[in-house]
Each structure stands twice: as C-alpha cells, then as structure tokens.
Simulated assay, not measured.
Amino acid sequence: MDLSGVIWRKSRRSGNGGADCVEVGVLEAPNGLAAAHKSDEDRLVVMRDSKDPDGPKLFFTESEWQAFSGGMGDGDFDDLI
C-alpha cells in the first residue's frame, strides 16, 4: 500500500518530543483502495504508531473519525486507564 503521499501529524500534546504517540494523516482516493473494506470512500484517516511507522495502521472513514475524535474530546474514554 502506498502511503508515501500521506502527511503525518502528531498531537501538540505529544510528550517526550512526540516519540511515544500516534500519528494521523489523510489518504486520498484512489489509494484508499488499500483498505478494501472501506474502498467506496474518497478519503480515509489513517493512524499509525510513531515508534513503528512501517507497522500496522488503522483506517477510519470521515464519519468514524469524527465519532472517535468527538468521543475523545467529550471524555468518553477517560475511564479506560
């Protein structure tokens, strides 16, 4: 899968110089076909571990990303750790 055109971003809240965090980028079609189960989407948000940039990735549709990021902002996951 070609992610060479993805511009990766880290949170401003990343500690330790951003070494221990996730990175997020946007994958535009037609490369979105890399996530076959979401291949009808024009854009996907991609998340990866900054310590392992060649490792596994998570792919979100725009609506999935909005729900996830909204839940983070609302504190829906604060009790997990």
Rank of each mutant, 00 (worst) to 15 (best):
L44W: 03
K10S: 01
E64K: 08
E23A: 09
A36H: 14
D76G: 00
N16A: 13
W65A: 02
V6A: 10
A67C: 08
S39P: 05
D76Y: 13
E23P: 11
D42P: 07
D54A: 13
R13L: 14
R9E: 00
D2G: 15
L27E: 04
D52W: 07
K38C: 01
D79T: 09
G32V: 14
S14E: 06
A19G: 14
S50H: 07
H37V: 01
K57P: 10
G32T: 13
G18Q: 04
G32A: 15
G75C: 11
F77C: 01
A34P: 07
T61Q: 05
I81G: 07
E62S: 07
R48D: 00
L33Y: 09
S11Q: 10
D20M: 09
K10D: 00
R13D: 14
P30G: 06
F77M: 05
N16W: 12
P56I: 01
L27Y: 07
E41R: 09
F59E: 02
M47V: 10
P53D: 04
D79I: 00
A67R: 11
L33T: 09
S69R: 10
R43M: 08
A35E: 03
L80S: 03
A67W: 02
V24G: 05
D74E: 12
V22T: 07
F77P: 05
G32D: 01
S4G: 07
P30V: 02
V46H: 00
S69W: 11
Q66M: 07
D40T: 11
A67Y: 08
A29D: 15
F68D: 09
G70M: 09
G75I: 01
V22I: 14
D76M: 11
W8A: 00
V46K: 03
V22G: 09
R48F: 00
G15C: 14
S4V: 04
G32E: 10
R12P: 03
L33N: 14
M47G: 04
I81W: 11
D20P: 03
G17M: 12
K51M: 02
K57V: 11
W8S: 03
S50G: 04
F60L: 08
K10H: 13
M47W: 02
D76E: 12
